[in-house]
Design a protein around this nucleic acid. Structure first.
Length: 656
RNA sequence: GCCGACGUAGCUCAGCCGGUAGAGCAGCGGUUUCGUAAACCGCCGGUCGGCAGUUCGAGUCUGCCCGUCGGCUCCA
């Protein structure tokens, strides 16, 4: 007999049947991305729209069914938390042995039995003492821990559970009892289309000093069609994975011997980066930025003064002991100290402000091994960093200017639905509360003036400043971290950054830190996925491929390629294999245009145009007409014709 | 860093109960010149992630490192 029946207490507890999903009161909801997406994306998910209570109940109920199945298969299992998350659910277990991939199938089979048996979900309240006795008797130490915490605090940030009137809420089905506020579906038979996806480690209460539990992720949908659509979306995410595309398209490489977390930009992606940097410099010159270069290592005294060694030291590489070990240098983790020194190279009048100092500055930060992820999480990266030095009176307008520039950037790349977050003071920080009050208010005011709606990310600021984060949706509805703006009152004080005001007195400058791309590595890694490798013409490493049909057209093909090259296009003349092989290869390299030329084209001075993503050809296009067309496309930085932007809400939101 | 899985040619992978490494693609050399997604023939290419151990013998078994993947924690 399984222990599920040992846990069964129907008789003595008096369960209430038929608690409907709609009885669930509003509460905090913990939302995460599906496992595949997490590392690539922002930590917080946008809140789902109203009206998805049923989906919430379905996911929550399936988590219970899974936990019940695990308990039947492994009677010694102990349970942690098992909440619904975006697109599915998970449950954490403390198990006597590690789970194997084959276990998922067994657990799923057991779940299907329970679904088929159509057990009722039943609810009851229990006094704290009763509940503690109940879970102690079953050796469910994590539940005991949670109830004790709830009894002490009333609520818990780790779950929706709470103590009300001295009681906690429990649910049971098929003898599996869990601490839970509900709601649930009425019966297990209401669970239709589900699948267990993966196994992972997770710390109890998310704290790495706590024991590590085994987490099973699963997904569940009201219908098989919706489950299929979701699984298809996961496949699409896999197809777009920048690490796979990075290999296929020869974009970047991370070499073990060179060092993990360090990116080699291969020639193709280097072209993308060069185009981005060229445009970035142009835009910044137009906006009154001064572009500079600063060193990659610095004496430790500057990092003592900036507070980096104290608050950020565990992420820094060093020390490098120079001059017989009498002088310590560290590799720079941020560009701000260098830019402060640039500003302080002379005395500035208020007339010169705001002074906007920018740099494509390469920094190195130690990241723990398990956190590295392709180009999205690396140890060396280049930020498109700028520090704006201005007076307090100018700060708000400057923040607004940066904000507008950020929006322009996002539009160019086809990102949509920007969402704004205001991240406030973290626990580990410099400076007084008054300074933080002032800085946080300045950011909030700047957003207020623009009437931009935003959410607060409590404690999400950097050690020296609060920040505005802009998060955006990519082509398949995933959220990414975008530009960041920070207003810093700490470093100007530590470095005594001043200017001479209209009264001839020294006045403390305000420092605004901002990035638009963030890091080039992460931004471009994200772009690869956003575009699925199909880059817009202006960024593409192979803008056109000239494909002669046979030898007789080689000379004409060369003249076409030369003509395009002389207009600044990146063109490949392919003479390998036969024509069909050349077409296939060009398509695989994601060349923007194929220009197929044979004897007819040579005679007429035309090209046959085939656009990436299409099997149609357009014959008899004169070279001039083609040049005019692609010049316009390139210079306007148009999104490619095969780009399909994000239009609908994400799958999870659509379920409302 | 932690939990689990995995590391064989540039890439994708095969290699049984331990007997001394194999395919396709790519590359190179030929042949072929063909009207819209893979022409044909040949050749080159591997300290099987690294270091120890067990064994007559290790790609296969064991241990420790390194790395990658899925998460956790952290983050641009």
């Amino acid at each position: 007999m399984s222990s599920a029946s040992e846990a069964s207490v129907d008789g003595e507890l008096g369960w209430n049947r038929g608690v409907s999903a709609s009885s669930r009161t509003k509460g905090r909801r913990r939302l995460f991305f599906c496992p595949k997406e997490t590392a690539a994306m922002a930590k917080t998910e946008r809140k789902p729209s109203h009206g998805d209570e049923k989906l919430y109940a379905l996911r929550h109920s399936t988590a219970h069914v899974m936990a019940g199945a695990v308990l039947e298969l492994m009677p010694d299992a102990k349970f942690g938390f098992g909440p619904p998350v975006a697109d599915g659910f998970y449950y954490d277990f403390d198990l006597p042995r590690p789970l194997q991939p084959e276990d998922l199938g067994k657990i799923e089979a057991k779940m299907r039995e329970v679904v088929k048996a159509n057990h009722a979900f039943e609810h009851r309240d229990m006094s704290v003492k009763e509940a503690l006795d109940f879970f102690r008797a079953r050796n469910q130490t994590y539940k005991v821990d949670q109830i004790e915490k709830l009894a002490a605090d009333g609520t818990s940030k780790d779950s929706d559970d709470r103590v009300e009137g001295g009681k906690v809420s429990l649910y049971q089905h098929n003898g599996f009892v869990d601490l839970c506020r509900g709601p649930h579906v009425a019966r297990t038979g209401d669970i239709k289309a589900f699948k267990l996806l993966s196994i992972a480690g997770a710390y109890w209460r998310g704290n790495e000093r706590n024991p590590q539990l085994q987490r099973i992720y699963g997904t569940v949908w009201p219908s098989q069609a919706e489950l299929d659509a979701y699984l298809e979306k996961l496949k699409e995410i896999e197809r777009r994975d920048h690490r796979a595309l990075g290999k296929d398209l020869e974009l970047f490489r991370i070499d073990d011997e060179l060092g993990s977390g360090l990116v080699l930009w291969l020639p193709n992606l280097s072209i993308v980066r060069e185009e981005l940097e060229t445009w970035w410099r142009k835009v910044h010159h137009e906006r009154g930025y001064t572009l500079v270069y600063t060193p990659h290592i610095a004496h430790e005294k500057i990092y003592q003064r900036s507070g980096h060694l104290e608050k950020y030291g565990e992420n820094m590489y060093g020390p490098l002991a120079l001059d017989e070990g009498t002088q310590n240098f560290w590799i720079k983790p941020m560009n701000c100290p260098g830019h402060i020194k640039v500003f302080q190279s002379k005395v500035h009048s208020y007339r010169e402000l705001p002074m906007r100092i920018g740099e494509l500055g390469t920094v190195y930060r130690y990241e723990r091994g398990g956190t590295l992820h392709g180009m999205l999480r690396v140890r060396g990266f280049t930020q498109d960093d700028s520090h704006i030095f201005c007076s307090w009176d100018q700060a708000q307008a400057e923040i607004g200017g940066v904000f507008d520039l950020a929006m322009e950037f996002l539009r160019v790349f086809g990102y949509s639905d920007p969402k704004i977050y205001l991240s406030t003071r973290p626990v580990k920080r410099l400076g007084t509360d008054e300074l933080w009050d002032k800085a946080e208010k300045a950011l909030a005011d700047a957003l207020g003036v623009r009437e931009v709606p935003y959410d607060i990310d409590e404690g999400g600021g950097v050690f020296y400043a609060p920040k505005i984060d802009i998060k955006v949706m990519d082509a398949i509805g995933r959220e990414w971290q975008g530009p960041t703006i920070q207003i810093d009152l700490n470093l100007p004080e530590r470095f005594d950054v001043t200017f001479v005001n209209a009264q001839g007195q020294r006045e403390r400058a305000v420092m605004i830190h901002r990035v638009l791309f963030g890091s080039l590595e992460r931004f471009v890694g994200g772009l690869i996925e956003h575009y699925a490798g199909n880059f817009p013409l202006w960024l593409n490493w192979e803008q056109a491929t000239v494909i002669p049909i046979r030898d007789s057209a080689f000379d004409y093909g060369r003249s076409v390629a030369d003509r395009l090259g002389s207009r600044g296009f990146r063109v490949k003349l392919d003479q390998q294999g036969d024509m069909r092989a050349r077409i296939k290869a060009a398509q695989e390299r994601k060349s923007s245009y194929m220009l197929i030329v044979g004897d007819k084209e040579a005679a007429a001075g035309t090209v046959s145009v085939r656009r990436r993503g299409s099997r149609d050809e357009e014959r008899g296009v004169t070279l001039d007409a083609f040049l005019e067309r692609v010049s316009e496309e390139r210079d306007s930085k148009a999104l490619p014709a095969d780009f399909v932007g994000h239009r609908e809400p994400s799958a999870g939101d659509a379920m409302a």
